[in-house]
Amino acid sequence: MRRQIPFALVFIFGFFMIFQFFVPHETSEFFYEFLLDWIIVIGIFALALGIWSLFKVSVEKIKLGKEGAQYSYVTLVGLFLMMAFGFTQKTGEGWGLYFLWIVLCGACIVALMRLRASASAGSKRMWGMMALGLLIGAVLVAIFDDAWAFYFYTQEGLSNSMFRDFFDYIMMPILATMFALLAFYIASAAYRAFRARNLLASLLLLAALLVMSRFNPFLPGAEYVAKASNWLMNVPNMAAQRAIVIGIGLGIVGTALKVILGIERGYMGKG
């Protein structure tokens, strides 16, 4: 029973989606839109599972004292800070004791982690007392400080300036730099391709060189290089793309059908 219901659900919903593709009527569209909405909502609940997994793995690393465990504190503090910024809002002109509250909470998390990791009863007691003290401090600040408040929502979305600052000055630079690393990586990958000594790799390399040099005006015969690379992009490239797309399309269609009919069950585990 436990095993059969999920596969029955897969079949029912899969079949419905195929059916609705051919039925343009409002009723079928109505259920289709509902289903897509549901999936988005379930996804957000799943995110909670993800955060829990990240938290658990970090805590586990600290507890076992694995190499690099101290960096797990960085993850946890980053996680906590962004969560705190995401669920609080400045209510007055200044921030008041907000940053003190942040520090107290962050320190409390670190103390709790130390408590979990400590082996002797003495150090357990010490970290426990410290965590409790920091927690009481944080609660007191939260109760008596009027400069900020929990939970907020405005028409513009998240409006805590610290939340935006963290996005602009912490997430964006790292994200953009990771992306920029690709320039070095693509150069090193090209070098790797240069060393390959078989026909297929040489074909790949030649085509890559031709297309790479299409904008280079200093090459002899630059005009012909540009023409040749255009031809490469428009003719053989188009042919191969079409062949791959047809193949992938059939692969997707075949696998999706196997999933709907319950032939492919590898994704659901057994137990």
């Binding site: 693509i186 085509a207 890559a208 031709l210 490469l232 992009m233 062949a243």
Partner: peptide, 11 residues
Amino acid sequence: ILMITFGAGFG
């Protein structure tokens, strides 16, 4: 032809 395409994509 696939390899030529992948090379072109890389470039």
